[in-house]
């Protein structure tokens, strides 16, 4: 917590529905995709909160709602106490300086027609920071900060490898000296040997610049490595939120344990000796989520109650919270 007792970021009951429409001219709404459905969490200065989940669980939408690339359907996003969801125009633009995003695909997120100097310097020129000459100098400092050579400033994205491109994306995100960076699958497009370089860079930058990360990824091993706390999402809902070590050693939600046991460990003996709890079936459509607890059709502990009522978040003293009527350490 910061000095005044509040968190850097507080998300409160965030909801984002995307309407499904029919018809070409007279479009009418025939339903909604429940992409994010009542998610609450907070994030402190210098902390990393990991968000994991399978594809379609709403983790990317969540990140985009936080930074207001999508406007939430309801709920609040408080950055240092200011509700971003209520801001518009220049007031929003002013607050957005403090938040930046690093995207998954370093090939698609850099404009191929601009050189690195313009890409990294773009946030600076948008916010009219300094003079042209000072911006040029700043870009070179940023490149140095992310492990690229200042001489790279004249080059174009196609001249770089995937890992280097992701460094450019990170330099751009750092340009305005933000407090919060949303990392949306920043390493999943990279090879393992390069992935480690980028993860180390992110950790290093966090220490030096006191950054907070909302780190969104599907790879639980990567998220565990970088995060202080981890939130597990399933079908638009946060089903468990816990300190990283607890989540791994003592998962409470059945989905978390299913997810953990599905992840292969690079050790043949451990791998073959493991007791697996394979989740059966597929993730249901978020346009038509199941009744009650959204996980109950795939859950190995489901009881009749789970199909009727939706569990709310329960908090433990250890800092773990979970949304389940029958957590793994409780008898059915």
């Amino acid at each position: 917590m910061s000095e005044n007792g509040s968190h850097l970021l507080e998300v409160d009951d965030l909801v984002k529905y995307f309407p499904i429409t029919r018809g070409v001219i007279l479009q009418k709404s025939v339903g909604a995709v429940h992409a994010v459905d009542g998610v609450s969490f907070h994030l402190d200065v210098g902390e990393t909160l990991g968000i994991v989940g399978e594809s379609g669980c709403g983790k990317t939408t969540l990140g985009r709602c936080v930074i207001q690339l999508y406007r939430p359907t309801s709920g609040r996003v408080l950055l240092e106490g200011t509700d971003l969801a209520g801001l518009k125009g220049s007031a929003l633009r002013h607050r957005r300086r403090d938040m930046q995003i690093v995207f998954q695909d370093p090939y698609a997120s850099l404009n191929p027609r601009k050189n690195v100097e313009r890409i990294v310097g773009e946030p600076l020129s948008i916010y009219r920071v300094g003079t042209r000459a000072s911006r040029k100098e700043q870009v070179r400092e940023l490149l140095d900060l992310v492990g690229l050579s200042p001489s790279h400033a004249e080059r174009y994205p196609h001249e770089f490898s995937g890992g280097q491109r992701q460094r450019i994306g990170i330099a751009r995100a750092l340009a305005l000296d933000p407090k919060l960076i949303i990392c949306d699958e920043p390493v999943s497009a990279l090879d393992v040997s390069i992935q480690a370089q980028i993860l180390n860079l992110l950790k290093d930058l966090q220490k030096r610049l006191r950054l907070s990360y909302l780190f969104i990824a599907h790879d639980l091993a990567v998220v565990r490595h970088i995060s202080h706390r981890i939130g597990v999402m399933y079908l638009g809902k946060l089903v468990e939120l816990a300190p990283a070590s607890y989540l791994y050693s003592n998962p409470l939600h059945p989905y978390t344990s299913g997810l953990l046991s599905a992840i292969p460990i690079p050790d043949p003996e451990l791998e073959q000796a493991r007791k697996r709890r394979l989740l059966t079936g597929d993730v249901p459509s978020p346009a038509n989520p199941p009744s009650g607890c959204v996980f109950h059709p795939r859950c190995f502990r489901a009881q009749p109650r789970c199909a009727e009522e939706s569990p709310s978040m329960e908090q433990r003293e250890t800092g773990q919270s979970f949304a389940c009527f029958y957590p793994l350490d409780r008898e059915i």
Binding site: I194, A196, Q197, N200, A221
Partner: peptide
């Protein structure tokens, strides 16, 4: 050896930094 050391593992303890392989293929 480097490849094995560079992968984050679910069962690892708290490792501050991964042993990245410098450079690119």
């Amino acid at each position: 050896q480097a490849l094995l050391a560079s992968v984050p593992r679910l069962d690892e303890g708290d490792r501050e930094y991964l042993e990245a392989i410098p450079g690119a293929p």
